[in-house]
Design a protein around this nucleic acid. Sequence first.
RNA 1: GCGGGUGUAGCUUAAUGGUAAAGCUCCAGCCUUCCAAGCUGGUCACGAGGGUUCGAUUCCCUUCACCCGCUCCA
Length: 509
Amino acid sequence: MSQAAQTQEPSENTPIDMKDIVALCKRRGFIFAASDIYGGINGFWDYGPLGTELKNNLRDYWWKSMVTTPPIGPDGVPVQIVGLDSAIIQNPEVWVASGHVGGFSDPMVDCRETQKRYRADHLVILIPSDDTPWIATIEDDEDFLKARLKKVGKGKSLSDFTQKNLTEIDFSDFDKILAPDAKEKGTLTEPKEFNLLFETGIGASAQDKVTAYLRGETAQGIFINYKNVLDSCRVKMPFGIAQVGKAFRNEVNPRNFIFRSREFEQMEMEWFCHPDDAPKWFEFWKSERQKFWQTVGLNSDNILMRDHDADELVFYSKGTCDIEYKYPFTDPDFGELEGIANRGDYDLTQHQEHSKTKLEYLDPERNNEKYLPHVIEPAAGLTRGVLALLCEAYTIDPNRPSGAYMNFTPAMAPKKAAILPLTAKEEHVPLAQKLYLELREEFAIDLDIKQNIGKRYARQDEIGTPYCFTIDNDTVADGTVTVRERNTMAQERIAIDKVAEYLREKIKG
RNA sequence: GCGGGUGUAGCUUAAUGGUAAAGCUCCAGCCUUCCAAGCUGGUCACGAGGGUUCGAUUCCCUUCACCCGCUCCA
């Protein structure tokens, strides 16, 4: 253990305040509130110069690990995955088939007294024949209703009431309704529709506009191109299609910085395989995806592989595992980072029916068996990944002037190195400029000349630059530079012509 | 979406019914041979809109944004 760590324990048990991370992100140019100078807009964020670099690094590594050099499969052969970039706006029918439009835009009502919210179609209303309050309950099984009546029914029995769903009741009668758990009647608000998809109109003239939707996930773009890819790219079962891109959801309540925002970025891969093999591939991808997040720098203690319980599964899912991360705002609990789902043939079935296009696969390696492939979907949030990287990297250290530093892995760090002449004098600057011009061909690096060296180290600490190369009098004399390592603040000297090789090795990890 | 809280510069804080002060940061210059030193100068704020008033950052209303709790997250 280092001396510094003995005198003042850096961060291990200090609770990290999300506010400090948000402040650093703004101060150093990682993430800004969207439309900041207009007062902001809820649920949207702009990525600044460094945030963009960080996001691109994570995205590129994902693309590399999926498409460029995908993993070796269980049989020892590299798996086959191709890339895709589908349109954000598709035929609206796509979202009807996927279930995003129609079934999920249920009206909701709020109770002003208890502040609870209910789906309007989930509330059962018992209407008495006299002018006593109408009784609302959240379940319609008989025992539950009887128990509810025992409490508030004033001795009446179930047969004294007419039973209706809230959706069948006119809003003008809402003032007679006693909401669940409420003491006063008439506390329910007017039902409001929640459609999580952003609507837009196609067509320049207002009259002729056709309603379309911004995609709520990138996955559907893959499913609807499954046949195109199959017919054009010489892929065969099993194979995957990967896509990175923006998705949009009208979240009811954007919260927690970029964790839940209305515009976000996803990295999704749909793995198509024979139904019999789906469970095997589900386990394979669970393990691969876990490794991915560890490689980009997340501590395994902060990652949780959480299999969904049977009652938590969406009806079509044959198994779902969330990869969760311990964000500061969920700590000690975890929040979703990626979901890996065995979706069966649900999506292809839906699109086959709605589009009336056959999507079955004729498998020559299985005696020309015809089947709808099953799908394993590792769907990660790119912007959530960025948030996890930021949270993981944020390290409080009272021993250094910045008070905290960003402990990114060299591969993820927005800047790989900074070239710092010790002084702004003539003897140091030209050497620094020369090194900078050489290194920038290969690495994202900074050249910083102004101000004293301590301030410049502090700035690089805060943006998470792993290495600083300092040019001093010895550089002039013997051609060596100081390497200053971010986490330990330790220094060593290496030859100036070995700097590129040094960096290359460190980034490779 | 509901309830509560907050809103003066990038940050931390002042003052005031007569349009705002300071420290740090930041920028420029000087100085500086290794961790936010020093000197000089400079940029930058009353979240937005409306009302009351001769005059509003201050009082009132609305709105926006952020934080906390609930809800939601297909």
